[in-house]
């Protein structure tokens, strides 16, 4: 899952980026409204964390502009403004959730999970399909009701594929969901993880659609 963090405060940004990375998200961090618009030009984020008091372009304007461009990522506003009217304005401008600073890291991560779940059209906190069950909160995976050990990237890759069972996901999309700007991407890396996963889950668990991408079959 790839997140965009829009936060002008250096220390908050630094700590948030580190915390989100620690929670196994791919994170990109921008510090003003203009950079945010640039980053949002390619709509490859699953979720946007937005601070409202930004230099150059206010957070709400970034949000309105993004929604006007049909941007579909979930938007979670992080702000020090706690007046009910501010919350209403934020949510009405197209935000999906609103968290007032200072917030609890656990709560932030839980809200991020909930927003991602909702965006994928799920109500269950766990993802399941084809005998595989993923618990994003605890980062645990079960196959045929047996807990299996997955590396962070393996887990994230499976999560992306399980969000849309039956649908083909391109290699590029998978790559963009797994890595932030700062992460170095080795070539063939998606293929490497697919290979490792097939070893753990069986050859046919992840199907390769030649020239298009990968998919996990829907439950029969």
């Amino acid at each position: 899952m790839r997140l965009l963090l829009i936060e002008d405060d250096l220390m908050i940004g630094e700590s948030l980026e580190a915390s989100l990375q620690h929670a196994q998200y791919a994170v990109d961090w921008v510090q003003d409204g203009h950079q945010a618009l640039l980053a949002l030009e390619h709509d490859l984020y699953d979720l946007i964390l937005l601070d409202l008091g930004l230099p150059r372009l206010q957070g709400l304007d970034v949000l309105k502009h993004y929604r006007k461009q049909q941007g579909e990522a979930a938007v979670l506003i992080l702000t020090a403004r706690d007046a009910p009217s501010d919350r209403v304005k934020g949510l009405d401008s197209g935000a999906d959730d609103y968290l007032v600073k200072p917030f609890d890291l656990d709560e932030l991560l839980a809200r991020i999970r909930a927003l991602l779940r909702r965006k994928a059209g799920r109500t269950q906190p766990e993802l399941a399909g084809n005998g595989l069950r993923l618990d994003p909160a605890k980062h645990q995976a079960f196959y045929q009701n047996q807990q299996i050990h997955l590396s962070v990237r393996e887990f994230n890759l499976l999560q992306v594929l399980l969000e849309k069972p039956g649908q083909v996901v391109s290699r590029e999309t998978l790559e963009s969901k797994l890595y932030g700007w700062q992460d170095e991407i080795e070539s063939n890396t998606v293929e490497v993880y697919i290979h490792l996963l097939r070893k753990k889950l069986g050859k046919d668990f992840i199907k390769n659609v030649r020239g298009v991408g990968y998919k996990i079959e829907e439950d029969a």
Partner: peptide, 9 residues
């Protein structure tokens, strides 16, 4: 709130 947020995070 800003420094406290950074501190808590």
């Amino acid at each position: 709130r800003s420094p406290l947020t950074a501190l808590k995070l």
